[in-house]
Amino acid sequence: MKYTYEQMATLVRDNNKSLCFSDEFIICLIWKESGFDSDATNSMSTATGLMQITKSAVEMVNSNTPNGTHYKHSDMTDAVKNIQCGSYYLDIAKNKLNGIDTGYGTDEGYSKSIMACEISLKSDKDHYMVALHKIHK
């Protein structure tokens, strides 16, 4: 399912489990990873859903979150579970995997455009598309 910005903002507000990253950061990351499409799937890896969560990321979340928190990789096309699991994983990547550039993305510049988008979104939510257009290499 392809979500609108407004739908995504609500989903992230209600499901962001991160203690380190803002709702705006996660909205921008989701735009970068999947373009707000919860069915997005990488044909060459296990990356799945809005935040392109891999099997190993799900396993890491399950072993590093409070008792009772458990996700299945097969549920990662579910928007709510994907955002919850992905936002937990962001904190793990930041604190235990040397940061999200290499722990979540592919290189040191990974988060640069996400942060530019985040700043723009925080300063002017009405023109969210201006912020989303900052997502590129």
Partner: peptide, 10 residues
């Protein structure tokens, strides 16, 4: 689309 750059290379 391109992994990690979905809305800008599609």
């Amino acid at each position: 689309c391109m992994p990690h750059n979905c809305p800008s290379e599609l």
